[in-house]
Simulated scan of single mutants.
Amino acid sequence: MRTPRTLEVWKLGTVNYLKSLKLQDKLVSERKANRIPDTLLSLQHPPTYTLGKRRTDHNLLIPEAELKSIGAELHYTQRGGDITFHGPHQAILYPILSLRSIGFGARSYVEALERSMIEFSSLYGVKARAGNKCETGVWVGDRKIGAIGVRISSGITCHGLAFNIDPDMKYFEHIVPCGIADKEVTSLRRETDAQLPSEEVIHEQLVTCLAKVFSYDDVVVKEDPSVILNILEDDD
């Protein structure tokens, strides 16, 4: 009989990107040592561009010196994938999971993240699809609605997915999103005729879809972000 699996979900609100990186590093160490269960961070970032480990700087179309004038930051990461944008009105999920414990390989993990966003999109009558190997993420026709960039270290995941609820699309004009020059970026607001609930509800629905796709038996939601964010201060 399979051991019941629990996913611990932290609702963090808006978190500075560098703080989220530091938090993920800490949680990955804790998960490797089996001191915490599979954990999911649900959050948003202030306007931020991030580059993956391939360092495709040429896909940033605005001089780095001008980023401050548009209220955005640029950060380099060790995740896979190309350049992307994170900002307000975007649902970001960072799973800190043990792939061994759930029996997933790297490819099946990415595909499960895609299915989570596809299932969520269907709640609003949006027919989304997974990309191919060169176009990872989730698409509505030829318009990208959800991005994926992950890092896996000793079988433990970090980084994750970003789903566009209703972000300011002007920020995407300053990059070649995910390195794909001939495709548009879209959002749930643009693709559905349905009335959208609060963004908190949308985050919760996306988390529920992910937990279902990954076959978690129990989801424990943590409401107080200060509890988990304080572990960073303890290290300082």
Score class of each variant (00 low, 15 high):
residue 182 D to T: 03
residue 193 D to E: 13
residue 188 L to S: 02
residue 224 D to G: 03
residue 195 Q to K: 11
residue 6 T to G: 04
residue 112 A to Q: 01
residue 27 L to W: 03
residue 199 E to H: 15
residue 26 K to V: 14
residue 61 L to R: 09
residue 192 T to E: 11
residue 14 T to H: 04
residue 18 L to F: 09
residue 44 Q to L: 09
residue 125 G to S: 06
residue 206 L to R: 04
residue 96 I to M: 06
residue 146 G to F: 01
residue 218 D to R: 06
residue 80 G to P: 11
residue 201 V to G: 00
residue 154 S to T: 06
residue 14 T to C: 01
residue 205 Q to E: 12
residue 220 V to R: 08
residue 156 I to V: 15
residue 169 M to H: 02
residue 208 T to F: 00
residue 66 E to Q: 15
residue 160 G to P: 08
residue 145 I to E: 01
residue 51 L to W: 03
residue 69 S to G: 07
residue 91 A to L: 12
residue 180 I to D: 05
residue 122 S to V: 06
residue 124 Y to C: 10
residue 9 V to Y: 01
residue 128 A to V: 08
residue 207 V to P: 01
residue 47 P to T: 08
residue 70 I to F: 11
residue 211 A to S: 14
residue 2 R to H: 07
residue 114 E to F: 14
residue 134 C to N: 13
residue 209 C to N: 04
residue 202 I to W: 07
residue 129 R to P: 06
residue 129 R to N: 13
residue 39 T to I: 06
residue 177 P to V: 01
residue 88 P to W: 07
residue 56 T to S: 03
residue 161 L to Q: 03
residue 143 R to N: 14
residue 213 V to S: 09
residue 20 S to L: 00
residue 192 T to W: 10
residue 210 L to G: 00
residue 86 H to K: 05
residue 102 I to W: 11
residue 89 H to C: 08
residue 235 D to V: 14
residue 172 F to G: 05
residue 206 L to D: 05
residue 25 D to T: 15
residue 202 I to H: 01
residue 227 V to N: 00
residue 235 D to H: 09
residue 170 K to S: 15
residue 172 F to C: 12
residue 214 F to A: 06
residue 171 Y to L: 09
residue 163 F to K: 06
residue 225 P to K: 02
residue 216 Y to D: 10
residue 72 A to G: 08
residue 170 K to V: 12
residue 67 L to A: 02
residue 120 F to K: 06
residue 33 A to K: 13
residue 123 L to E: 09
residue 228 I to T: 06
residue 88 P to R: 09
residue 5 R to D: 08
residue 168 D to H: 14
residue 188 L to I: 09
residue 114 E to H: 14
residue 204 E to K: 11
residue 13 G to M: 10
residue 91 A to Q: 03
residue 169 M to C: 05
residue 216 Y to I: 14
residue 18 L to Y: 10
residue 216 Y to V: 13
residue 114 E to N: 11
residue 151 R to M: 08
residue 128 A to D: 05
residue 177 P to L: 05
residue 94 Y to K: 08
residue 157 T to I: 08
residue 78 Q to N: 15
residue 225 P to S: 02
residue 30 E to I: 01
residue 230 N to K: 15
residue 19 K to D: 08
residue 231 I to A: 12
residue 182 D to I: 00
residue 220 V to I: 12
residue 201 V to T: 11
residue 54 R to M: 07
residue 197 P to Q: 05
residue 105 G to D: 09
residue 61 L to H: 07
residue 119 E to D: 10
residue 127 K to N: 10
residue 188 L to T: 04
residue 53 K to C: 05
residue 201 V to D: 10
residue 92 I to R: 00
residue 37 P to L: 03
residue 178 C to R: 00
residue 9 V to T: 02
residue 172 F to S: 07
residue 4 P to F: 10
residue 105 G to P: 05
residue 27 L to C: 03
residue 193 D to V: 08
residue 195 Q to I: 10
residue 61 L to C: 11
